[in-house]
C-alpha cells in the first residue's frame, strides 16, 4: 500500500516538476525578449488560475454557504433560518444580473449592500485599528514614565520618537495638495507647507526606498526559489530515473 502511494506520488511529483520546469523556463524566456512562448505561458496561466479561483469559490463559497443550507432551511419551520438562507440567494440572483447588460442595473442593489458594508468596516477599522493606535504610539515616544517602565533611555526613545513624529507629520503634509494661484499663474502651496512637504518628501523617499529594497528582496527570493526548484527537478529526475 505504501509503495503504491509512493508510486502514485512520484508520477504526480514528476509531472508537477515537469510542468514547473517548463513554465518557469517559458516565463524566464522573457529575459531575452517578448516571445510567443512567454505569451502562451501567461495566457494559459491566467486561464488556469481563473478556473482554479472559480473552483475554489464554487467549493468554498457557493456549495457550503448557499446550496448546502438551502434544503434544510426550506424544510425548516424557522422563518429566521429561511430568511438567513434565502436572502443571499436573492442577492446572488441580483448580482448575477450584472452579466446581462440589460439587467445590470438590478445588480446595484447587491453592490450597494456590499459597498455599504465595506464602508462601515473600513471606517471602524481605520479608526480603531490604525488612527488611534498610531497616534497613541507616536505620543508614547515622549512618555517618560513609559520609557522608564520599559527600562529604555528616554532620550533615545524621545529622539527616535521625534524623528518618527517628524516623518509622520511631514509625510502627511506632503500629501496635502492644496495650493494657491500665484501672480505668474502657477500654483504653489503655502510657504510653510512647502517646506514641511519638502522634509516629508525625504521621509517618503526613505520609506519607498525601504519598500523597494523589500520588493527586490522578495523578487530575488522568488528567483532563487525558481532556480532552486529547477535544480530540485533535475535532482528528482536523476533520482527517479537513476541518471
Amino acid at each position: 500500500m505504501q509503495g503504491k502511494v509512493n508510486k502514485m506520488n512520484i508520477p504526480l511529483d514528476l509531472l508537477s516538476g515537469v510542468l514547473s520546469f517548463l513554465f518557469t523556463i517559458l516565463i524566464l524566456s522573457y529575459l531575452i525578449g517578448d516571445n510567443p512562448l512567454f505569451r502562451i505561458a501567461t495566457y494559459l496561466f491566467v486561464g488556469i488560475a481563473s478556473g482554479y479561483v472559480a473552483t475554489v469559490i464554487w467549493w468554498q463559497v457557493l456549495v457550503p454557504r448557499l446550496m448546502t443550507p438551502l434544503l434544510p432551511a426550506l424544510n425548516s419551520d424557522s422563518l429566521a433560518l429561511k430568511i438567513f438562507v434565502l436572502v443571499p440567494w436573492l442577492g446572488m440572483a441580483f448580482i448575477l444580473m450584472k452579466i446581462s447588460p440589460r439587467l445590470s442595473g438590478i445588480a446595484s442593489l447587491t453592490m450597494a449592500f456590499l459597498v455599504g458594508a465595506g464602508a462601515a468596516v473600513i471606517i471602524a477599522g481605520a479608526v480603531t485599528g490604525t488612527l488611534i493606535p498610531q497616534f497613541e504610539a507616536t505620543i508614547n515616544f515622549f512618555d517618560r514614565d513609559l520609557a522608564a517602565a520599559r527600562n529604555i533611555d528616554f532620550l533615545e526613545v524621545a529622539g527616535n520618537g521625534a524623528i518618527i513624529l517628524a516623518g509622520a507629520v511631514t509625510s502627511l503634509v506632503y500629501f496635502h495638495f492644496g495650493a494657491r494661484p500665484q501672480a505668474d499663474g502657477s500654483m504653489r502651496r503655502f510657504g510653510l507647507i512647502e517646506i514641511i512637504a519638502w522634509v516629508g518628501r525625504i521621509f517618503i523617499g526613505i520609506t519607498l526606498g525601504a519598500i523597494f529594497a523589500g520588493v527586490y528582496a522578495a523578487a530575488l527570493t522568488a528567483l532563487i526559489e525558481r532556480i532552486s526548484s529547477i535544480f530540485d527537478f533535475i535532482t528528482l529526475l536523476r533520482t527517479t530515473f537513476g541518471l
Binding site: Q134, E136, A137, I164, T207, G214, T221
Partner: peptide
C-alpha cells in the same frame, strides 16, 4: 511577512499592535 510588506507593517509593531 514578505520583505516587501515589512516596512509598512513596522508601524504596527511599533504601536504594539
Amino acid at each position: 511577512s514578505s520583505a516587501q510588506a515589512a516596512p509598512m507593517i513596522q508601524p504596527y509593531y511599533n504601536s504594539a499592535q
